[in-house]
Simulated assay, not measured.
Amino acid sequence: MTTATADGLHVVCPHCQTTNRVRTAQLGSAPDCGQCHQPLFTGHPVALDAAAFDRHVGRGQLPVLVDFWAPWCGPCRQMAPAFEQAARTLEPQVRVAKVDTEAQPGLGARFNIRSIPTLALFVGGREIARQPGAMGGADIVRWTQQALGRAAAA
């Protein structure tokens, strides 16, 4: 589910955090950032600090799937390859991102993250779904698509 304008939709660059306007039909054709000329989609989760989180979730018009995790968390480390796999499948329709709650405790507190790993899906700047616990790659993709489908039907 993406919210598009007549000119396209806003996609935040994972490298320089510049907001780019991309035509919906061009999402799958490997668009580059107009500012830094790096790919807008890498097939890998984007590590977010608080400022980048606010840009991607608040300004970008793609749904954003966030893995709240910590480096000391065994299940988080175990789920990391599955989350990478999900990023390759979900992009470019969904921005896939990670927030290290050790390095960004304010974001964990802001979203009341009580256990990790926790997946949270944001659309239009607000959280629409949350899933605690480690999951496999196919399950992450399925959960995300189902949550987006429910949001679109609502």
Rank of each mutant, 00 (worst) to 15 (best):
A4C: 07
D7E: 15
G8N: 08
L9S: 11
H15K: 09
C16D: 11
T18F: 06
T19R: 08
N20I: 01
N20R: 02
N20A: 02
R21S: 13
V22Q: 10
R23F: 06
A25S: 14
S29K: 12
Q35D: 13
Q35A: 15
C36F: 02
L40W: 02
F41E: 12
T42K: 09
H44L: 14
P45H: 09
P45V: 08
P45G: 07
V46Q: 12
L48C: 10
A50I: 04
A50C: 04
A52R: 14
F53N: 01
G58D: 05
G58H: 03
V64C: 02
L65F: 07
V66H: 09
A70M: 10
P71Y: 06
W72S: 14
C73S: 15
P75S: 05
Q85Y: 07
Q85T: 11
A86L: 10
A87R: 12
R88I: 01
R88A: 15
E91D: 09
Q93C: 02
V96I: 13
A97Q: 08
A97V: 03
V99N: 07
D100M: 10
T101K: 00
A103R: 14
L107E: 05
F122A: 05
V123F: 05
G124R: 07
G125Q: 01
I128L: 07
I128E: 09
A129H: 08
Q131D: 01
A134N: 04
A134W: 01
M135R: 15
M135K: 13
A138H: 07
D139I: 03
V141W: 04
V141Q: 05
W143Q: 09
L148F: 04
G149K: 12
G149L: 11
R150W: 11
R150S: 11
A152Y: 00
A154Q: 14
